[in-house]
Structures are given as structure tokens and as C-alpha cells.
Nucleic acid binder design. Structure first.
Lengths: 212, 212
DNA sequence: TTTGGAAAATTAACACTGTTAAGTATTTTT
DNA sequence: AAAAATACTTAACAGTGTTAATTTTCCAAA
């Protein structure tokens, strides 16, 4: 055993320390590579110690899941300075898309994987899903603002928000999971996946705009 | 060792036999539970025998992936009887959605998982992605037919197809991975997830229709 | 019919995974 | 100092995909 005297001031910091190690490992090598044993090795503790602070791996995944929403919320913050509602919605889409690309593993954790969200599904505590709900509300309020400006008239804001979210989420996952590659390669139209992604997004925006 | 005299007429049938066992196991217990060892046990062979017929698990996943596209193509077949292009597109969406629900694990394999598609990405052989390309072309030709009928005017058919696909795919994955549950529960609007899914689809269709 | 070689299938092992029961230190309280 | 509570570790279970080395099976030539 090595030198670990001043590693943790108070013992309860271990829970945070575990999360930090997990986050670091996860951001560098992805979720697959983030095993309990590797986290344990990182903080120089036995693998079983982790189970004294987290019920199981899903609970750690959920903690990271929340971290992801924090990062995303930060990225969304700048949007409030955009006054025109449609431009704001458009920028929101762009930020969402960029987040999915820059923080691919976080995106996976937040919107694809079942594990972190199944962990909540048991407890009906809404506190756990707060960050997610906030993000959805931001979208919804932007949609409503757009409607007040004459867009998407007569649609239920919630349902319409879900349509928009679905489109962006679908686009992100198709890209991240490599399902666009084959479609793109088969057609010679686009200059790579990144280009196809941007063009599809532009098309979607144009389509939304056309309904004013 | 058990009774396995007349189990396989010709030895080369083993490759198909492995796939059948995998398919069966996979449809009953999902992909996670479909391990090499379980497949081997099913056909009463040693686990390593499988590697004589398939390079790795990803190759089996890819084989199942193709099976999935076959099933989907069968479901799409009936659509050709619908004359009105928009109604045909609408029905296509409905079939796609229902397929994702009924064959959730196949859907995962076909449109979510990286494994089966990464297996192809190496070889540039378009033959491997034939079924997928056909499905996309069906969507695209329906979109073009709609455009000829006055819908989605001025949009690039490929890009617009990708927007539509993204929306449907996004909706399917959000549902399958349980990410709609929390959004739905938080708002009291819908009567369960299934209802929200239908209503969102309806809204999307209405939105598409409004552009004529 | 026996023998040799190729093909097919197996055993054993590697390096992992999440997770739990049982045992050992360490610290705090009585 | 003894007892109780806390913190942590060791060892193990039951799995996973995958590979190297070995054995069994089969078929054709001598």
C-alpha cells in the first residue's frame, strides 16, 4: 500500500473522490472502460469499498448522468441572451448537437443508456430527474415563445417539444452510433458525416421556419 | 455427450444452426443474455466451435441485424398498396414505430448498437448494408412522391428523408430506453407512455401535413 | 485395410466484468 | 482496558469474449 495519509481530509469525501475518479476515467476511456475495479485502483482502495458508498454501478452511472446535465445546462445558459425566439431555438439545437459530439459519452449516459435512468425509475422522487426536467422546460418555453411569435400555430407545446427533441435526439444518436456513415457513403452527396449532419440540421431548421 | 447423430445433415448447416440458436435466444432473452456460451449450449457444441464459423460476436450480431431488416422489409411490403403518397408515408411511420415496439431487441441491433455496424465499417462492401439502404430508399421514394403531390416543396429529398428518419428514430429510442417515462410522469397530460408516443407521432404527422 | 493428413471440435486458460459473504483492521464509545 | 461500531479488505462466485494447444473425427491414398 502506498502513501495515502493526506489524501482525504474527511472520510465522507470518499464518495466524491470515487465520483471524480469515475468521471475522469469515463471521460478519457468511455463508459465501457470505467469498471469498478479501475475506479478502485485510481483512488487506491479495494473494489468492494466502492459498494459502501454506492449501491451499484448504476448509481455511479446516475451520478455521472447528473454531472452531464450540469455541463449541458452551462452550455444552454448563453442562449438567454438571444432575444429572437426562433433564433434562440435554433441556437439551442446547435448547442445540443455540439454537446452530443463533444461529450459523446455523457450524451450516451444521459439520453441513450437505460442503466442510469432505470436506477431512478423505482423511486418516484422527482428530485433525481430535476436537471432533465429543467432542460425539457427550457425547450418547451422556447417553443411557446416561438408560437407567440407566430410559429407552430395551433400545436400543443408539449407534444411539439417532443417532436423537436425527438428529431435532434435521433440525429445525434444516428451520428454517434455510426449509422449515418453508410447512408452517407452510399450517396455521394455529402462531404463526410459532419457535413451531412449540418445539412440535415439546416434542413430541419428551414422546415420549422417555413411554418410561420 | 448426448444424442446428436442426425442433428445436422451436412456440417455446413452448423453456421445456420448457430444463427438460429442465437436468434431464438436473442428474441426470448435479449441481446445481453445471448452469450457465446449459451448459444453453444443450445446447439450442444463447445463454445469455441462457434469461432470456427463466426469471427467474433459482432459478426453474429451483424447476421441478426440483417435478419431484422428482413422482418422490417416484410412489414413495409403492405405499404405499396396505399396509393396516396402522404397516407403511405404516414403508414410507413406507423409501421416503423410498431416494429420498434414489437421487435425492440431487433431495433436495438439495427439502429442503436455500434457492434454490428462497426463490423461492416472495415470492409467497403456495400452488399452488407443492402437491406438498410433499401429501407432508406423506400422512405426517400415516398418523400419524393409526397413532393410531387405538393408536400415539402423545395427541400432536398435526401436531407428531408434524414430529418423524417431522425424524428422517428429519436421517438423510438426515447421510448425504448425509458427516457419518455419521466417527462410524461412529470406532466400530467398523457395517459401513459404509449399514449404520449401516439400523440407525439400524430403531432409530427400533422406538422408534416401542414406544409402542403 | 491400414495409414497419413487434413479438418473439426474440444479442453484449458487468460484477462476481464459486477457483486457478495466473511473476515480483519481501525476507531470510537463505554 | 474492554466492548461495540465503523471502515476496509480478501476471497470467492458466476459470469463474459476470446485464444492457443490439443484431441477427436473423418476421408482419401497406399
Amino acid at each position: 500500500m502506498g502513501i495515502r495519509e493526506r489524501k482525504l481530509k474527511h472520510k465522507e469525501d470518499l464518495k466524491q473522490s470515487i465520483l471524480d475518479a469515475a468521471k475522469q476515467l469515463f471521460q478519457r476511456e468511455g463508459y465501457e472502460a470505467t469498471s469498478i475495479r479501475k475506479i478502485a485502483a485510481e483512488i487506491e482502495f479495494s473494489p468492494t469499498t466502492i459498494y459502501l458508498y454506492y449501491k451499484d454501478k448504476a448509481e455511479i452511472a446516475h451520478a455521472l448522468h447528473r454531472e452531464g446535465f450540469k455541463i449541458m445546462a452551462d452550455q444552454f445558459r448563453v442562449l438567454s441572451y438571444i432575444e429572437d425566439p426562433f433564433e434562440r431555438l435554433k441556437a439551442m439545437g446547435r448547442v445540443y448537437l455540439q454537446f452530443a459530439i463533444d461529450y459523446a459519452d455523457y450524451y450516451e449516459l444521459m439520453f441513450v443508456m437505460k442503466e442510469p435512468i432505470q436506477h431512478i425509475s423505482g423511486c418516484f422522487d422527482m428530485e433525481e430527474w430535476k436537471e432533465g426536467a429543467e432542460a425539457f422546460h427550457l425547450l418547451q418555453s422556447n417553443i411557446i415563445a416561438c408560437q407567440e411569435a407566430g410559429y407552430f400555430k395551433g400545436f400543443d407545446p408539449t407534444a411539439f417539444s417532443m417532436v423537436v427533441w425527438s428529431t435532434m435526439h435521433g440525429l445525434c444518436t444516428l451520428k454517434l452510433h455510426g449509422h449515418l456513415d453508410h447512408v452517407i457513403r452510399e450517396k455521394g452527396l455529402f462531404e463526410g458525416v459532419e457535413d451531412a449532419l449540418q445539412h440535415t440540421f439546416e434542413t430541419f431548421v428551414q422546415f420549422l421556419k417555413g411554418t410561420k
